[in-house]
Design a protein around this nucleic acid. Structure first.
Lengths: 346, 346
DNA sequence: ATGAAAGCGCTAACAC
DNA sequence: GTGTTAGCGCTTTCAT
């Protein structure tokens, strides 16, 4: 832990035979000087292993090269991909990310926001576990930019969300294209905005008579829904589009218990593409991926632009979902490991 | 985003009618002055909404009140609880946490570590996904303290791990106490140190003849293991102690498919207490919790002590696991919602 | 083209 | 007890 004294710009300047002012300008590619001088300074800095003191720099530049990521998503189901994206977009720029988990605790939220203020973060990215709820903290009027990603923000804020309708549409169209005629939608509670959007998109494809069953976001509900659907008289569904992967897993398990083969007899599609669930299901789930990492990347880019003083248009930006095809729904897909786009049965 | 000028200590001093030096001392509870002055300064600071500039403070105090959490655990299965604990231990002290996900990429690791160095974090906590592997970065010789939590560190480092042997012992003793006679252990690959420790603890309880089956950490393996065990001639196991919750879930599902009732006929115990798995299993899994949040808390406390210059004895600290009882293993447990410790069958 | 000097906001010796 | 002063390491006018 004991270590040679840290190299300061002062040392670089001395060794390079220039003043600290020149050294500073050389290293920051500002000011004017002979190319020779600039190069020499940069080389000595590199040779000496000079790393500028971020604190000192922040003090004068009023930029800390840090951002805060605020979240109330405890399990990290949604936050981790977002975080990964944010980090990826910022790490090359030398920007580090404070992760602040605030649960649903307003007091804790305030503590974290105050800490961010003290540390003069260049911006705050707010994220959460659903797009129609706000974090229990007020982020308006802060002296730094704020971007909302996968959580609701004020009217005139910059907000990033996934395009639930498009994701749902792609999933359902996939099922239709696979020849399924009787598709039902088993999803979460009606109180979620995204549940409504997905259900609307579902009906837009299959027709207004499309059947939608609401329940909790759990495997148990998927299970129960199958019980309900298959105990009714009349035609049974030949496909189930689920509101999340846990429900889908419940559905698949329940079907297997009834001796119904997925995907031969019934196709199942999930939502979220939570790999730990979708990949462990037998058969592995085809699922809609909300591209949360890309959402995070975009949030990182935006916060950076804002921090640099560039203008960013406020409003809600919807980012597209993509369907990840596994084995739970049959149909035809373009083979990924063959040239020429041969189509194959899966 | 436009905001009134930030209050500086200079403003506080002026309003309180003292010098900045006195103001500083008053607010930091250092130096000597009349209690009256101190109170007055503190009150004006509060009234003005003064928040010290962390950058400026860091520059002089050589403490940034930030720490870095380095991890290669992408899913966050282990990192998130650790992170929550770290954060919990530090947030009251005004310390914020940089989360740095480095995958298994040495170059990315170096980028993050360099960023931490530039930002003069007060300490680094290294964590990962298994206790017998190192992160792909060299953290020795850094000018700040390092604590290893749930990842391997150098010989003379400060390391925090869960007590796998104790956790396994408690689980198996619980099964024995529940009257189980023929317990097998279905676990992960032999290459994991923790697999060895748990298996040894298992055999220490059930006898050296205790049967241990190794395989991948997956549901599929749990499934397959049941197939293997139940297709053999002779007595069937009446309990399965699993190396993680995913295996346990596979076991439970496979047993159900065979018409074997859990926990009536066979008891199952998991490991990790990953709620998303253990709670969704039917019946919910009794599982060993590694107390990762507490591990994180302890790591936070230690890094703080080190940052404050207090000495901390190097070496490996084992923190106890605790058994979380749900419905997958029967036996007798103390009813939690009755007074007087009535014992009840579960 | 380069350098001297004045801060950024705060803390800590050392005077008074 | 309280204030004066000198930095912390870097950036940035403004001279030269």
């Amino acid at each position: 832990m004991a270590k040679a004294e840290r190299i300061r710009i002062y040392d670089v300047a001395r060794v390079a035979g220039v003043s600290v002012a020149t050294a500073s300008k050389a290293l920051n590619d500002t000011g004017r000087m002979t190319e020779a001088t600039r190069t020499r300074v940069k080389q000595t800095a590199a040779a000496l292993g000079f790393r500028p003191n971020a604190m000192a720099r922040a003090l004068t530049k009023h930029r800390s090269f840090t951002v805060g990521l605020l979240t109330n998503d405890t399990y990290g189901r949604f936050t981790l991909p977002v975080m990964a994206g944010v980090s990826e977009a910022l790490v090359d720029q030398g920007v580090s990310v404070f992760l602040c988990g605030i649960e649903d605790d307003a007091a804790l939220g305030k503590v974290h926001v105050d800490a961010m203020l003290d540390k003069q973060v260049d911006g705050i990215i707010a994220t959460g576990k659903r797009i129609d709820r706000r974090l229990p903290v007020d982020l308006s009027g802060l002296p730094m930019p704020v971007v909302y990603a996968f959580t609701e923000g004020p009217e005139d804020a910059i907000t990033l969300v996934s395009d639930d309708a498009q994701g749902a549409r792609e999933a359902v169209e996939w099922l239709v294209q696979a020849g399924r005629k009787n598709i039902v939608h088993v999803t979460g509670p009606e109180t979620f905005v995204s549940v409504g959007e997905r259900a609307r998109a579902f009906r837009a494809v299959v027709g207004e008579a499309g059947r939608v069953l609401h329940g909790p976001w759990s495997e148990a509900w998927g299970h129960e829904a199958v019980g309900r659907l298959w105990s009714e008289a009349g035609d049974k569904p030949d496909a189930v589009f689920c509101g999340n992967d846990q429900i889908a897993r419940g559905v698949v398990d329940a079907l297997r218990e009834r001796g119904i083969v997925v995907p031969d007899q019934v196709s199942v599609v999930g939502f979220d593409n939570w790999e730990i669930v979708s990949a462990a299901t037998r058969p592995p789930l085809t699922s809609v991926d909300m591209n949360l990492k890309e959402l995070g990347r975009e949030a990182g880019r935006l916060i950076l632009e804002l921090a640099e003083g560039k203008p960013v248009e406020p409003g809600v930006r919807q980012l597209p979902c993509k369907l990840v095809v596994r084995q739970s729904c049959g149909g035809v897909r373009r083979s990924s490991d063959q040239q020429g786009g041969v189509l194959e049965e899966v």
